[in-house]
Computed example of a mutant assay.
Amino acid sequence: MDMKTAAFSLPRWRSTGWLCDPGANVPQDIRVKLIGSLFGTLPIFAGGVLNTIAVAVAIAWRDPSPAFLAWVVIEILLCGTRLCVLVAAHRAAAAGRPTFTDVYVLLAVLWGASVGYGTFISILSNDWVAATLSCLSAAAMVGGICFRNFGAPRLVAIMILLSLGPCCIAALLSDETVLRLTLVQIPFYLVAMSIAAFHLNKLLVTTMKAERENDHRARHDALTGLPNRAGLVHASAHLYQADQIGEGKTAVLYMDLDGFKPVNDRHGHEAGDQLLVTIGKRLDALKGPDDMVFRIGGDEFVVIVRAGDQAEIASFADRLVSEVPAPFMLEPEVSVEIGASIGVALIPEHGADVMAALTAADKALTLAKLSGKAQWTLAT
């Protein structure tokens, strides 16, 4: 499952929300990605599960007492349930449904507690082979916890505490005085690994914010703030596919300003930039909530419109031709007027996606300009 194409639900419960909280000032989309990282992949999950079950079974085979047999049963039930929830969560994420995040986080906490229970009874059994196996398994699991759950540092700290904390209690109850060293080692290890988890999480969030900002800059026009040609390509690849449109009509309107160059020549490039910003705001105000506006270069804009039928699209094109050229005040006493020529193409009638329809709209735009400008033409 590709986590880039599937969104996992944020926790709803107060307790699991606290455990998975990455800190303040983390945008919602990054929080969703961090939650997705907790679910990981099946191979990583299988490694930890097989390790803990194998150790529990091996020790129970060596000492089939009720305490160790109970550990085996607990491990199998917990790991089997976690596997079912993990598979169901991936399928739900792919389908856009809630992904059982609260249950999955709770099971992770219980799994840590089950490993801690195993180390506890193994140390108190005075079977040092069993104690060695269980403690090594717990230590290995802690490494996996830190690797898999870096998106939720509080969850990391709690799982480490539940996995290794019982060793300290068992050391106090054991007759082996040397085990009291764990009263120093494990708390120190817990603090160190928890601090590392918080630092790693902070570094990850910072990196994701930077990538998010770079991605936004790459897809948006610095002058108007509108999506640029790269944003248009992205929309073509991820939105407005012919097989995703459903009912209604989707149109690509390719608009070129008439008389923009004389404004630049007469009033300067700063005035031209101001005019382009105003055009962008005007288009953004005219579009519907499900429509998108792009500036793809110079004085060229693209509007993608969703409408009930072709008549609505024609009405919208008429509005652009009539309202976009309204007088612009560049300075208190300087007013300019420009026109707008538009080529219109429909999806899928003139192309299976945005870029294919844009090619048809470009040809229609040429016809609109050749026919006298300040008008729109539908692609043939």
Rank of each mutant, 00 (worst) to 15 (best):
A140Q: 11
L42S: 06
E176P: 01
C167Y: 01
V354H: 01
Y189I: 12
G40M: 11
H234E: 15
Q310C: 01
T250N: 05
E349M: 04
D21A: 10
L77R: 02
R12M: 06
K261R: 09
H216E: 11
L69I: 13
W13N: 15
A6P: 03
N214C: 03
P327E: 03
D362H: 10
D221W: 02
G272P: 04
L107T: 05
F198H: 13
T101N: 15
R229D: 06
I44L: 15
G288K: 06
S37C: 08
D265A: 06
L50D: 04
L226N: 02
T366E: 08
F316R: 01
G144T: 06
L378E: 00
G118A: 09
V305M: 09
P64W: 04
D258Q: 12
T366G: 14
H234T: 07
F100T: 04
F68K: 07
I296E: 01
S137A: 15
G118F: 01
R82K: 11
F45K: 13
D291E: 08
G268L: 07
E349D: 12
D175R: 14
F100Q: 13
A326N: 06
A251D: 01
R266P: 01
K287D: 03
A271F: 02
L204N: 12
V55K: 02
W13S: 15
N214S: 08
C84W: 13
L124F: 04
D221L: 07
A230L: 15
A352M: 08
A317P: 01
V156E: 04
I186F: 15
T99C: 11
A237K: 08
W128M: 09
A171Y: 03
M292A: 13
D291T: 07
Q244C: 08
A93D: 05
V321E: 02
S163L: 05
S322Q: 12
D63H: 09
A192K: 04
R14I: 13
S137E: 13
T182Q: 03
M159I: 05
A356E: 15
L283I: 05
A152C: 06
L83V: 13
I186Y: 13
D353K: 02
A285M: 12
R266K: 09
A237T: 06
N51G: 06
V85W: 00
T99S: 10
A345I: 00
T359G: 11
A307D: 05
F100P: 01
R148F: 04
A170S: 10
L276T: 03
A235M: 07
N228A: 11
L370D: 14
G298R: 07
S315L: 10
M193S: 12
L107N: 01
V263S: 02
L223A: 05
D284I: 00
V142F: 02
A357P: 03
E333F: 10
T278A: 12
R31W: 09
W111F: 12
H90Q: 10
I186D: 09
A60T: 11
L286Y: 06
V57W: 08
I347E: 00
